[in-house]
């Protein structure tokens, strides 16, 4: 508990740092002093706070979504971007943008969620077709499925001149986050809380169908609940800030090594670590080449894939 509070403290410091850096001048002094204060306050309210909140919410959401996926597939290397979920969500966004461009963001997100759900369900279906699958075939199938779905998406995006928007969904970027344009992420946050409430059930589901059934769990409904949470969180994050590759894979794996997979205990850590990692990457992306900023998707792509490789190559004796 003490350690958890310490981690919370670190994340709050990171959030504070994230609030204070950026293109516009914004220091504690300028906030407190009276005459340019109004302007600085404006920046803070309209851009900085929403941005930092968006970072925390999406980092938390994606990390938890990754953990849920790993429980449901009983595989350590699965997360929304290695299961076709993200790509299906972008396809959904594209379809709704083509068919009904005027609908409110919430509706767009719901459509994307439905696509994400369908894509993930298809992934689980294909997995069942594969005989004698090894732990590593599972993410492989997911990545391939994602590739196929995104080929379809790219095709239509190209045909209808929407490559620009597609790019925004596929690479995470917080620079466009302003007040009024990130609130969907609160939906993701609500779902994260829901996941915490169902933590025991999800942990049980992670022990496999037989064990879960023996303990009186309605396995199918828990799997469905988990899939809905994952799909909606992914859709909300993809729709507002875009994709952050491998986030949901790294964080749960690290936490699992630290303290195991009892989600009642590990979920707060996953949430905090997810937020902390994205905050750090975002700060790096903003500082390294100021005043320009490198999108979070690119930074996460480098950090995430490097860490994923380390996990893969480190754990290979155990997996082989």
């Amino acid at each position: 508990m003490k350690r958890l509070l310490l981690a919370l403290f670190v994340v709050m410091i990171l959030a504070l740092v994230s609030l204070l850096i950026g293109a516009g001048d914004l220091s504690l002094a300028s906030l407190l002093s009276s005459w340019p204060g109004e302007n600085a306050m404006q920046v803070l309210l309209v851009s900085r706070i929403p941005r930092t909140v968006a970072i925390v919410l999406s980092g938390t959401g994606m990390a938890v979504a990754g953990m849920i996926m790993q429980m449901l597939t009983q595989n350590r290397f699965v997360e929304p971007s290695t299961a076709g979920t993200v790509e299906s969500a972008s396809l959904g966004l594209l379809v709704v943008t083509l068919v009904a461009p005027g609908v409110p963001p919430l509706v767009k997100m719901l459509v994307a969620s439905a696509f994400a759900l369908a894509g993930t369900a298809l992934f689980l279906r294909i997995l069942r077709l594969i005989p004698l699958r090894s732990a590593l075939t599972v993410p492989l199938v997911g990545i391939m499925l994602g590739g196929i779905v995104s080929a379809v998406t790219t095709f239509f995006a190209y045909r209808f001149d929407l490559l620009q928007s597609l790019n925004a969904w596929t690479t995470g970027d917080f620079s466009g986050v302003l007040r009024g344009r990130y609130e969907l992420l609160w939906v993701a946050f609500g779902l994260t809380v829901l996941a915490y409430l169902a933590a025991d059930r999800l942990t049980l589901a992670g022990m496999g169908r037989d064990v879960a059934t023996n303990l009186g769990l309605r396995y199918r409904s828990v799997v469905s609940l988990g899939l809905v949470i994952v799909s909606m969180v992914t859709a909300a994050v993809v729709a507002t800030v875009g994709m952050m590759p491998f986030l949901g894979l790294i964080v749960p794996n690290v936490v699992s090594m630290m303290m195991g997979d009892n989600m009642r205990r590990s979920l707060p850590w996953i949430a905090l670590l997810g937020a902390g990692l994205v905050l750090t990457c975002d700060i790096v992306g903003r500082v390294i080449y100021a005043p320009y900023e490198i999108p979070i998707g690119t930074v996460m792509g480098v950090v995430g894939s490097a860490l994923f490789l380390a996990l893969l190559l480190k754990g290979r004796e155990r997996l082989a």
Binding site: L140, P245, A320
Partner: peptide, 25 residues
């Protein structure tokens, strides 16, 4: 294992692409 190799290769691909994107920016 073969699957490990492929997965590592794919992730290397992502890493290289992200690094290129990073440098391009």
């Amino acid at each position: 294992s073969l699957h490990l190799l492929i997965l590592v290769g794919i992730v290397f691909g992502v890493l290289f692409r992200s690094l290129s994107g990073f440098m391009q920016r």
